[in-house]
Design a protein around this nucleic acid. Structure first.
Length: 459
RNA sequence: GGCGCCAUAGCCAAGUGGUAAGGCAGAGCUCUGCAAAAGCUCGAUUCCCCAGUUCAAAUCUGGGUGGCGCCUCCA
């Protein structure tokens, strides 16, 4: 299989360092609800897992839960996000973290995203982080200021190699130097000294404090995956700061290349623009469900675009994905227990093309096209059904489930109307029959007469 | 000011040198009392514009135009 490596900006043949594939994924900061843009990145992460497994690799995958240390500003002087959320909601940071972590894990499950083998919490690794920072200080690449311990970006010559940003050029911009104690603008906090009112704080060689945001990933990745591993994933927004800083910390300490492949998921747009809370378009999975879109409809929506391209979310596009998914599901189900003589050569070819597509840098949209071609094969055959389910072990769209006609529990009076229409139809009173159907439609209930009798579903 | 990405039918979206996947919406047909649902068929002579390279370009090069993102937190 081939994957696009942000470090080289090229697709590369995937070759693991050892038999077992080691992955680290930047997980959520659990101070608020995750929105669908966040979830898109985890669908991408899951697709990567599934394709690796399809290629018979065993995985050791670590995902962190950031429950401390992520400041509201990158100026290294803002408030910790957990701390702030806790203050606003008048709860303890641990309660906040626990609540949002549970919602997050539940969303993952709903989206058929496999839980990585190892889930780790930043607050469980404070001791290791302090040791990591001490080591950097001892190596002379970090220094102390009045408010914390900072990494000296000038001491790491590879700084900027992931984002390919020229620091000198960047400084010509509007960036405001707020911390005059920093040696270089790009220097970042490894450890912050905590003011007394700061809720989350731990003792350290530098007094009471809390860890910088970037140190947690470097520390936990090393603890669970060793001093080098295969793939590090995250959103594209993490390339310039977070991941650049992780590399600086870890490679300064390890003295060699830390991560072989960096993979990043692109952003989700809304109506052609950025998704943001202030615009009120940072939808959650729950918002979609309120509008009648299931998590799997959303997964299908995500898989219909390549993970490295921006995906434009609109309600129209979402509705299209829903219809498309439901029809695909029904078309696939038509093959179950099918006894037609299927052309195995044709079906096998599509299966091969499907595999080639996912192995080519996780090209799910292309693969989905082949899946549709399989589902639309005229001969209905169990053979094809099995092939499709094998493909779905990668896409995880839940196609093995029996499609259920979406029915609504009927109110007593609605039930009476349905019965009245049944009688009208039996009497061939088409006028009455159509009138009742229109009335029900006005109430949002669609009537369908099928060979199996009258069916109804929500509009 | 710097860096980068993108521009394919009404919409979403693959395709990165060999003559435009797939889906949604739409149109026609079949079927059903009429509808709906379902099935079948149709749909870009063309890939933002201009020039160039090539036997051959949506795909490569150069120049435009337009949109978006990053350089502040962000998946």
């Amino acid at each position: 299989m081939r994957v696009y490596n942000t470090l080289s900006r090229e697709k590369e043949e995937f070759q693991p360092l050892e038999d077992i594939v080691r992955i680290y994924s930047c997980g959520p900061t659990v101070y608020q609800y995750a929105h669908i843009g966040n979830m898109r990145t985890y669908v991408f992460m899951d697709l990567l897992r599934k394709v690796l497994q399809f290629n018979n690799y065993n995985l050791k995958h670590v995902m962190n839960i950031t429950d401390v240390g992520h400041l509201v500003s990158d100026m290294d002087d803002g408030e910790d996000k957990l701390n702030k959320s806790a203050r606003l909601q008048q709860k303890s940071p641990y309660e906040i973290a626990k609540f949002y972590t549970e919602v997050f894990m539940s969303d993952l499950q709903a989206l058929h995203i496999q839980t990585p083998e190892i889930i780790v919490y930043a607050t469980d690794h404070i001791t290791e982080m302090i040791a990591f920072v001490e080591d950097l200080v001892n190596r002379g690449v970090a220094y102390e200021t009045s408010d914390g311990i900072y990494f000296d970006s000038a001491k790491f010559e590879g700084y900027g190699k992931l984002s390919r940003l020229d620091l000198e050029e960047q400084q010509a911009g509007a960036r405001v130097a707020v911390n005059t104690e920093k040696h270089n603008p790009a220097d970042f906090a490894l450890w912050k000294k905590a003011p007394p009112e700061h809720i989350m704080q731990w003792p350290s060689p530098w007094g009471q404090g809390f860890p910088g945001w970037h140190i947690e990933c470097s520390t936990m990745a090393e603890k669970y995956l060793g001093d080098a591993f295969d793939i590090h994933t995250g959103g594209v927004d993490h390339i310039p700061v977070h991941h650049e800083n992780e590399i600086a910390q870890s490679e300064s300490r390890l003295g060699h290349q830390w991560v072989k492949y960096w993979m990043h998921g692109e952003f989700m747009m809304v109506n052609g623009g950025k998704m943001s809370k202030s615009l009120g378009n940072a939808y959650r999975l729950a918002d979609l469900q309120e509008r009648g879109f299931s998590p799997l409809h959303f997964r299908y929506f995500c898989l219909n675009a390549h993970y490295r391209n921006k995906l434009n979310f609109t309600w129209d596009a979402m509705a299209g994905a829903k219809t498309s998914y439901d029809r695909l599901h029904a078309a696939v189900f038509a093959h179950k227990n099918g006894t037609d003589e299927a052309c195995h050569t044709e079906a096998d070819l599509l299966r091969t093309q499907f595999a080639e597509a996912v192995n080519d840098d996780l090209n799910a949209p292309k693969a989905l096209g082949f899946l549709w071609n399989m589902a639309r094969l005229p001969a209905k055959s169990q053979y094809i059904y099995d092939l499709i389910l094998a493909c779905d072990s990668i896409l995880s769209l839940g196609l093995e489930a029996t499609p259920v006609v979406e029915t609504v529990s009927l109110e007593a009076d609605v039930e009476a109307m349905v019965e009245a229409r049944r009688v009208a139809r039996a009497n061939k009173d088409w006028a009455a029959s159509d009138r009742i159907r229109d009335e029900l439609k006005a109430q949002g209930i669609l009537i369908e007469d099928t060979a199996q009798g009258m069916k109804w579903r929500k509009a």
